[in-house]
């Protein structure tokens, strides 16, 4: 791994300044993706700016409508949070199934979203729950945030500070892990709110996380697994790799969506 200058600023302004001052700076939150990327030499930043020194980036707050999760909150903290389990148990469940126990003790929601790995779990929750990504500069609606593989709407140097989720009426996440890496080969997050049903799919799309519109319409009519009978996402826009061809992913999306709906319906 190529060496870099490491800094751990203790407030957002200093972090932003460090980034601006660098020709090639990278923020690090949990490091669970960035460190492997650095080891492989796929990124060679001059400066790594560790965001874990910024105290108010971490933590979970609940209000009457939902919860807000600080960007450097670890997956394990979200999974174990009473507040999250109360307000959005599906989100706690998702967080508890990311990676493995050690990864969950380091990985963060902000890091996961900023990286937007097509097989990451959190993007499905953020999109299905219509969450708001809050940065040091603005608020970004989930719909506008994700912008293709490993790409987001974040500007150069912009830092996610927290993510705001409104509690749905009911929701569930079902994940089909890659047999080797155990990343999501397909993950489907289904959420029902007063505004309707949203179904977000991760792990499968050629452009990353996406919504399954036809499923949403069918579930809005009848929130039951049976409502998804015969509905499949077209395989054309899905990934094919050595672990799963697009048609298998398309099939799994329907299966996982049905299972998520059944679970959401049962837990409500």
């Amino acid at each position: 791994m190529q060496d870099f200058h490491f800094t751990r600023p203790d407030d957002l302004a200093a972090a932003g300044q460090a980034h601006q001052a660098s020709d090639d700076g990278a923020y690090m939150a949990g490091g669970q993706t960035l460190i492997p990327v650095l080891k492989q030499g796929l990124a060679m930043p001059e400066d790594v700016i560790d965001l874990n020194g910024i105290a108010d980036l971490s933590g979970i707050e609940a209000d009457g409508h939902g919860i807000t999760i600080g960007a450097t909150t670890r997956h394990a903290s979200v999974a174990a949070s009473e507040a999250v389990c109360q307000a959005i148990p599906a989100l706690a469940d998702l967080a508890g199934r990311i990676g493995d126990p050690q990864v969950r003790n380091r990985g963060t929601i902000g890091g996961s979203l900023a990286n937007n790995d097509p097989s990451a779990d959190y993007p499905a929750a953020v999109l299905a729950l219509n969450a708001t990504v809050v940065t040091d500069r603005r608020e970004i609606a989930a719909e506008a945030f994700f912008d293709g593989l490993f790409t987001t709407n974040l500007n150069e140097g912009e830092i996610i500070t927290r993510v705001r989720f409104a509690a749905p009426d009911r929701a569930a996440y079902e994940k089909f892990p890659n047999p080797a890496s155990r990343y999501a080969l397909v993950g489907v997050f289904v959420a029902q709110t007063a505004d309707g049903v949203r179904v977000a799919v991760t792990g499968a799309g050629q452009d990353g996380v996406f919504r399954a519109a036809e499923m949403e319409t069918a579930l809005a009519d009848s929130f039951s697994a049976g409502a998804l009978d015969g509905i499949a996402v077209p395989a054309d826009d899905l990934m094919t790799d050595m672990h799963a061809a697009a048609d298998y992913r398309a099939h799994l999306i329907t299966v996982m969506a049905k299972r998520a709906v059944a679970r959401a319906a049962a837990t409500a």
Binding site: F6, I35, D50, N52, A76, Q102
Partner: peptide, 22 residues
Amino acid sequence: CGACVVHLDGKPVKSCTVLAAQ
């Protein structure tokens, strides 16, 4: 693989995926 697991502030982590500086 997890051969490198240590406890960091009481929690198990993969020490190959944490910088010493962190």
